[in-house]
Write a protein that binds this DNA or RNA. Structure first.
Lengths: 204, 204
DNA sequence: AAATGGTTTAACCAACTGGTTAACAAATTT
DNA sequence: AAATTTGTTAACCAGTTGGTTAAACCATTT
C-alpha cells in the first residue's frame, strides 16, 4: 500500500507553498523548497498545480480570502462606526497572531504586480467602501462624528492596525524592542488604537 | 582621472540599480536588466560592485540614508510634539512624491532579512526613540498631552504617514479610486493626518 | 612612442530553475 | 483478474542567472 494521501497531497502542497511563498515572495520562492517542505517530488507540484504561477495564485487567493472577511467587518457591518472600529481593532490583532506573514505578503505582491487586484475586484465579497461611506456621512451629518471623509477614516483605521505588522522589523529597531517587548506593544494596541481613533473623531 | 566617464559609470550603475532593485526587490532584480538600464556591459557591474549582494547593499544603504533624516525630524528635533508631528506629516508626504518606491522597498527587504537592520543600528544617525520618549513623557506630565506612551504615538505617526504609500494598490482598490483620485486623497493628508493625531492626544 | 594602469567588452561557464517525460505503482473500473 | 485511470518518482532538459576571463581600449606618464 502506497499512501492514503490522495487529496491530502494537494493540501500538503498548498500548506508548504503558503509557507514558502509568504515568507519569500513569488520571486524568492523555489519549487524545490516547496516540494521538500511538502515531502514529495517536485513533479507533483506540476501535476496538481501545473506551474509556479498557478500555485502562487492559489496561495494568494487563499490568503486574500482570509483577509477579506476581516475588512468587511469594518465596511459592511450594521453597527455604529465606533463599535465597528472597536471590534475590528481587537479582532484584527488577534487574527494577525495566527497569520503574521499575511498582510506583508499581500501588499508586497500587489506592489510587484498592481494589475493583479483588478481581477479580484469582481469577486463576490471583495471589500468595498460604498456602504461604509454612506454610514460615515450619515453619522457626520447627525453630529455623532466630527467631519471626516470615509476614505480618510478607512485609511487611518487600516494604517493603524496593519502597519505595525507590516513594518515590524523596522519599528522594532526604532523603538529598541525585542520580540517579546514588541508583542507587548501590539497587545496593548487592541484597545489603545480604537481609543486613539474614537478620541479623534467623536463629538462630545 | 582617466576617462570622462570613470566616476560617471559608477553613478549610472547605482541609479539603474536603484531603479531595478526598488521596483523588483533583491530576488526579482536581474543583473542584466541593471546593466541594460545603465547602458553598459554586465561585467562592469562586477567590476565596480563585485557582486549582486554588494550592489544591493549599496542601494539599500543609500535608500535608508535618505529615509533616516526624515524620521529624525520627528525623533530628535527640539520643537514641541505637536509642531513636530505637523511638520513631519507635511514634509514626509512631499518627500514621498520624490521617492515613491522607498518605504515599500525598505520594509519588504527587511521582512525578507530582518537581521539586516542590526548592522545599521550602529550607524551614526540611526533613528532612535530615546529623546522622543523623554519629550513625550514630559508633555504628558505637564498636561499638554493626554496619557500615551512614546512608542505607541510614534507607531501611530509612522503608520498614518507611511502606510498609504506602502499599501497604495490595496487601498486604491478598496476605496475605488484611480491614480489621480488617490493622489488627491494623499494630498489632503498633509494636514488632515496631523489634525487627526493632535485631535486625539492633545489636552484642551 | 612605448609603457602603464584603470576601464570596457565579448565570450564563456557552471550552477540553478521551472518544467517535462517515461516508466512504475496503487487504486478503481470493467 | 484484466484493463484503465490516477498518483508518484527519478532522470532529464533547455533556458536563465550570477559571475569570470582574457583581450582590447584609452588617457596619461615615462
Amino acid at each position: 500500500m502506497k499512501k492514503t494521501k490522495d487529496e491530502n497531497t494537494e493540501v500538503q502542497i498548498l500548506d508548504a507553498a503558503k509557507n514558502v511563498f509568504q515568507s519569500k515572495g513569488m520571486d524568492g520562492a523555489r519549487m524545490q523548497e516547496i516540494a521538500d517542505k511538502a515531502g514529495i517530488n517536485k513533479a507533483m507540484l506540476h501535476y496538481y498545480y501545473r506551474n509556479k504561477q498557478l500555485l502562487f495564485e492559489a496561495v494568494f487567493n487563499n490568503a486574500f480570502s482570509l483577509l477579506a472577511p476581516q475588512l468587511n467587518a469594518v465596511l459592511n457591518d450594521d453597527s455604529s462606526i465606533e463599535k465597528k472600529i472597536r471590534n475590528f481593532t481587537s479582532n484584527y490583532i488577534a487574527f494577525m497572531d495566527k497569520h503574521p506573514y499575511l498582510p506583508a505578503f499581500v501588499i508586497q505582491e500587489l506592489n510587484r504586480n498592481p494589475e493583479f487586484i483588478l481581477k479580484m475586484k469582481n469577486n463576490l465579497g471583495f471589500p468595498n467602501i460604498e456602504k461604509f461611506k454612506i454610514q460615515v456621512n450619515q453619522e457626520v451629518k447627525d453630529g455623532i462624528l466630527k467631519p471626516i471623509s470615509a476614505e480618510q477614516l478607512f485609511m487611518n483605521v487600516m494604517a493603524l492596525n496593519v502597519f505595525p505588522f507590516v513594518a515590524k522589523p523596522l519599528l522594532m529597531a526604532f523603538t529598541n524592542t525585542d520580540d517579546e517587548a514588541y508583542n507587548g506593544l501590539i497587545e496593548k494596541r487592541k484597545t489603545e488604537v480604537a481609543d486613539f481613533i474614537i478620541n479623534s473623531i467623536k463629538n462630545v
